[in-house]
């Protein structure tokens, strides 16, 4: 087994370096998600002036997503369409880029458009990325190149993180000087992990 130590160490090092900025995105976003109230008080969302516009020839007879995409193209707004609400009178949907959320509302009788934009900042950008693509609205999620790419990257980060943790255990096992303390760390982590799960989900 020891012959694998050098290549595993090299892979652990390079993969760890590559993945570390993504791990930072996911970790910072946990703090943002858990303390949204605090973030709102120190870094509130900036609402930009509302824009009113008018469009012609909106293809309402297409699918909801095609209609929404046609509207965003005509308006020159880029971003992931997270969900679409539609009734006989209006179609509305948010168009999101990490850190910037635009809400588009179209009156289907007059084709008048109301555009509301929020600048959410870098921290909420990590929050958005953490939650995407997520379990909701799976039929329309991934309607931009960036979200399709992020979906692959998010998965890749998870698989690489699993590799890093497994290879980390492998590398530690050969460090005799750290073995006792390492076992203590693993066992105490396992006890706290099991205890928490038992308490919370019974």
């Amino acid at each position: 087994m020891k012959k694998y130590y050098p290549p595993v160490r090299t892979l652990h090092l390079y993969i760890g370096l590559f993945v570390s900025p993504f791990v930072l995105i996911f970790s910072i976003s946990v703090l943002v998600l858990n303390h949204a109230g605090y973030l709102n008080s120190v870094m509130p969302v900036k609402r930009l002036p509302v824009i009113k516009s008018h469009l012609d020839k909106i293809p309402y007879d297409a699918s909801d997503l095609q209609t929404a995409k046609a509207i965003t193209q005509k308006l020159g707004i880029n971003g992931e369409i997270d969900f679409i609400s539609q009734n006989d009178d209006h179609i509305s949907f948010p168009v999101t880029l990490p850190g910037e959320r635009t809400k588009i509302e179209v009156n289907k009788h007059t084709n008048d458009v109301l555009i509301t934009r929020d600048e959410e900042g870098v921290f909420r950008a990590t929050n958005y990325l953490h939650k995407m693509p997520g379990p909701h609205n799976t039929t329309i999620r991934g309607n931009t190149v960036f979200m399709k790419t992020w979906r692959l990257l998010a998965d890749m980060v998870v698989y690489l993180l699993l590799f890093l943790s497994a290879s980390g255990i492998f590398l530690w096992y050969f460090l005799k000087a750290e073995r006792k303390l390492g076992w203590l760390a693993i066992i105490s982590g396992a006890i706290i992990f099991t205890g928490l799960l038992l308490f919370i989900i019974g």
Partner: peptide, 21 residues
């Protein structure tokens, strides 16, 4: 090394549940 070992089960839980989501 030791923080990594301590967190390993938590990392696996959140990695796997993230994939499920």
């Amino acid at each position: 090394i030791h923080i990594g070992l301590f967190l390993v089960l938590f990392i696996w839980l959140f990695s796997f549940s993230g994939l499920l989501l």
